[in-house]
Design a protein around this nucleic acid. Structure first.
Lengths: 213, 213
DNA sequence: GCTTCGTTGTGAGGGAGTTCACAAGGTCTC
DNA sequence: GAGACCTTGTGAACTCCCTCACAACGAAGC
């Protein structure tokens, strides 16, 4: 298990499979086939089987995969046995949406601290999460051994915030700010720029609409 | 220009390049080099040059690319000359974040209609965008010839909303709901599942933190 | 037990996107 | 104008994923 690298797309889909297994399989069912999970996840059955290889789980031909085994196997890959804390920086509309969405969802991966510049927000608990001032960022992250952060600040503050996060020991950043971030080697970065996404969708919506004619 | 297909990643980066050219180049500058744009966008210079090939723009060795040409060339690819309207479905925290973020940003691509089930929201103008009830969805989309939609509704409503959007003529969907969507051929779909993103980042944050030891 | 059917696990192949690397072509200096 | 330097444009190589296709296997029926 050590030394094997897993593609980041695979990790994302494993997370999805687990959610689907926990929520979308009719109760009483004990096993699933790869084509069933594939249908729920909107991917091919071969993709599901490949992804599941990374967990070490195996199914039986003709019978499928045991659901309990899958959930356990995926969790062994995705979860930190000691639990993992996440910090959110920027508690605007987007930040609150993220907090609402994740609150109480999974005990093992939780947003345990948020940060904002607005004094009306700092010191309070917002959507079940304590909001600290930016000046406390380093301390709180180091004390909580927080290695993962979500960035939802305005473009102008994104890079300096990132630098502070990295200095405080963060090793993975999910960036919703509309600017590309520069991070040192060894820090994992996922960019989620909404403008890029929307313009891409708009382009292809227009293009496929034209093709139809 | 017709018939040439452009990769969706390239479209996203072109959108980014244009924003950077419009906002991050010191005034007075007339040209840029690929390595400068690459630095701003956090990609390689070769990537920039490849992407720009898709616009038909060309630079001069030793002098770089004329900024005006680039902005114009990229706009010719990305923009609909008649302007393009976008619909937002789901005006919760995330929906409002999206509205705030895009309001007045680009005249050519605008969110012109939003939809929600909450009667407290429908009929009102929220962040500069009229909010309609879900029952008006088909009418408004067809009257406005809206081909692009952003989905920010709860998981349970996502697929049925999608079906309604597609029936109303939508050809591109940006999905922030935490479930995979099933769409017919000819509809472009971009999935932006926050849980998948966060679990992926958390996994690699943990992994690279371990590798460091 | 033998055959049929349906599913898993995976080597091999394929395809898309990115990077390499270099020829071609400006610019600047002397 | 010759040489040094820097940048563009792009064929080719590479890399990463995904899909194909099929051997291996278990179950069920006869």
């Amino acid at each position: 298990m050590n030394g094997v690298t897993i593609a980041s797309r695979t990790i994302g889909r494993l997370s999805l499979y687990r959610r689907l297994l926990e929520s979308s399989i009719p109760g009483g069912r004990d096993t699933v086939f790869s084509h069933e999970l594939a249908g729920l996840a909107c991917v091919t059955p071969a993709q599901v089987r490949r992804d599941l290889m990374a967990t070490g789980c195996s199914g039986s031909p003709g019978k499928g995969y045991r659901i309990r085994d899958l959930i356990e196997g995926i969790s062994k890959v995705l979860d930190d046995p000691e639990g993992q804390s996440v910090a959110l920086v920027g508690v605007g509309n987007l930040g609150r949406a993220i907090l609402t969405y994740f609150s109480g969802r999974r005990r093992n991966l939780r947003i345990t601290a948020s940060f904002d510049v607005d004094p009306l927000k700092t010191g309070r608990v917002i959507n079940g999460c304590r909001c600290y001032s930016m000046s406390e960022l380093g301390d709180v992250l180091e004390r909580g051994r927080i290695k993962t952060a979500i960035l939802a600040v305005p473009a102008g503050k994104a890079q300096e915030t990132t630098d502070a996060l990295v200095a405080a020991g963060v090793r993975g950043i999910l960036n919703y700010a509309p600017v590309p971030l520069r991070v040192p080697d060894g820090v994992f970065l996922e960019e989620r720029d909404m403008t890029m996404s929307l313009e891409t969708v708009a382009f292809f919506a227009r293009k496929t609409a034209l093709e139809r004619k």
